[in-house]
Design a protein around this nucleic acid. Structure first.
Lengths: 337, 337
DNA sequence: CTGAAAGCGCTTACAG
DNA sequence: CTGAAAGCGCTTACAG
């Protein structure tokens, strides 16, 4: 790797002038050409690490996620990467691995690498570290759920509404015995569950505890939960799943059981994008516009890194969409809403 | 952020001693305790950037992928992240975005950030940059396909065999008119296609060009390709898809057509993991052990970063597995192999 | 516009 | 074991 010193040797210019050139400040045209020539000869590229150390900015944003095991997180990563790269900002990825425990403090790891900001789907575990970062003036953007009391921007889904929307649809189609596979692992899932329960109550449907499952957020967890529903004396006529992995697991159990969707069981999934069309009939799903969430989060961060960041934290709330498929059967006559 | 100087103020020790402590070299027990106390008070954490600059090692590995739009890449990321984090190595992610063009040279970006090594699913576009890195002595590990002439470790699939295996299965089950949705975008796909053609030829089955499609590597590309197959005068009795996205797209088109799998069309997909069980019947697939590929790649990299790297490049070739489902119909009597 | 000098926060020989 | 000094490759005021 060649350095400014090598350019200095070839051009006779000072380090300060070379630095100015590489920072886009004005330099005599002749000098600029000389630097470009020398750089081409040497195959020179400025050392980002040194730049960062001296300037105190790394043009790198940390992306901290609970794990990397769902397509939800992948889509988020892809969306953020695209937006940040357009603006010359790099991305350092950390998975929190809360489950494993003791993998070290991901947030402090990011801090030690001088990231200019952190975009995160936060976990309980990460919260204290995020507070420290905010105290130090590092901008944070939260996605998916909000750490209470953290002064930071956020992009979240109206999760209560997302949950309620699924139940409303099922009730409108005549369902009464509705099962729900959700979870208590995060405020996001709790809110979706609240939406479910509230809507059931509102429409006078029984909230039967044996129809509510909160398994591990995994394909196998949901598969087992669905299997339990299917063994009930009076099994539900419809099931709603609160995440993509849970949807996949529940559907696998349904397929294994030999029951048909929607004749024997109606189904509403969550966030399955193109997978919803993988089955016959296609699935009804509740879904978020993940690309929009990611790009909004990236934009909020870029604004914070820019010259005139706004003072107050901004929370963007997005609403989920209902994608109709053919996986919900209409029982009896359709109720009026 | 506090620094060594602050620790020096609180402990009276020299910077050299503090540095020794943080690099795990021996320090008097009393001094170690003093440093720990001061660090706790100050909430100190060594600045990784400064460390990197001075030591010339960043304990960061660049991960360079063509894009971030497939679950194949996500699984690879997840596997690598897990292994690297266990060893205290961070991961800087770049998507090459070859398609968009002009997004800047991802490889040089990584070089400027002083990554200790690069793990990559290479693209044509990245090849020259990777050569430069090798010339500079930066270790590279390639996954999925090999850039010819690059002195670097690699973990690849026996793609010819993967392609041949699918065709063999279909022929064994009595199929003759076999369609293939693949692509020419990468040596990986070309090799899978060669395996397909070779096996068809070997078993005396016609290689009909109208049964071969090489669409964009996208869900929509495969959907369109499948739709064209279905409009053929004598449509094929079976289709094999060479990637996960292509499989999803083809299956969507099949569902939309109203044809049943496997009665009207047999289907073999690629790399669908749990998605293969999403449908009734479950899908037959060819799949790679992605976790193993990722962890092998990470281990090869960690070995290169360790104290005694081997001299010669290592190529690990893995073989694909056949996962039986119920998406292949048996026509006529089963042939002997 | 340009250059000389100091310094970002560490690590690294080198003495002691 | 410890400490004083130089330096990693840049950027940043400050003069000129």
């Amino acid at each position: 790797m060649s350095t400014y010193k090598d350019l200095q040797r070839l051009t006779g210019l000072s380090l300060a002038t070379i630095s100015k050139y590489y920072n886009g400040r004005s330099v005599l045209a002749a000098n600029a050409r000389a630097i470009e020539e020398a750089a081409a000869t040497l195959d020179f590229r400025p050392n980002t690490i040194a730049r960062n150390l001296r300037s105190g900015r790394s043009r790198t944003v940390g992306v901290l996620l609970p794990d990397l095991n769902s397509s939800f997180y992948l889509s988020i990563l892809a969306g953020i990467e695209l937006r940040l790269r357009q603006r010359g900002v790099s991305m350092l990825i950390c998975a929190d691995h809360s489950a494993e425990g003791g993998v070290g403090d991901a947030v402090r790891e990011l801090a030690g690498r001088m990231v200019d900001g952190v975009i995160t789907v936060p976990t309980e575990r990460a919260a204290p570290g995020l507070r420290e970062l905010v105290a130090r003036g590092t901008p944070i953007v939260m996605m998916d759920w909000i750490v209470e009391g953290l002064e930071a921007d956020a992009v979240i889904l109206d999760n209560q509404h997302a949950g309620a929307m699924a139940i409303q649809q099922l009730i409108d189609r005549g369902h009464r015995d509705i099962a729900y596979i959700g979870g208590n692992g995060s405020p996001t899932l709790i809110a979706r569950g609240e939406g479910v329960r509230a809507q059931l109550a509102l429409r006078g449907r029984p909230v039967r505890e044996e129809y509510l499952a909160a398994p591990d957020l995994s394909v196998e967890g949901a598969r087992a939960a669905m299997q339990r529903f299917l063994m009930l004396e009076d099994r539900p006529t419809a099931v709603f799943c609160a995440t993509d992995l849970l949807s996949v697991g529940a559907l696998i159990a349904l397929n294994e059981s030999g029951l048909r969707v929607p004749q024997d069981m109606s189904f509403i999934g969550f966030d399955m994008s193109s997978l919803a069309r993988l089955t016959t009939p296609a699935l009804d799903t509740i879904s978020q516009r993940i690309d929009e969430i990611a790009s909004t989060a990236a934009d909020l961060m870029l604004a914070r890194l820019g010259p005139h960041p706004s003072r107050d934290p901004i929370t963007v709330t997005m609403s989920a969409d209902y994608h109709a498929g053919g996986s919900v059967a209409t029982l009896r006559e359709r109720e009026s809403v």
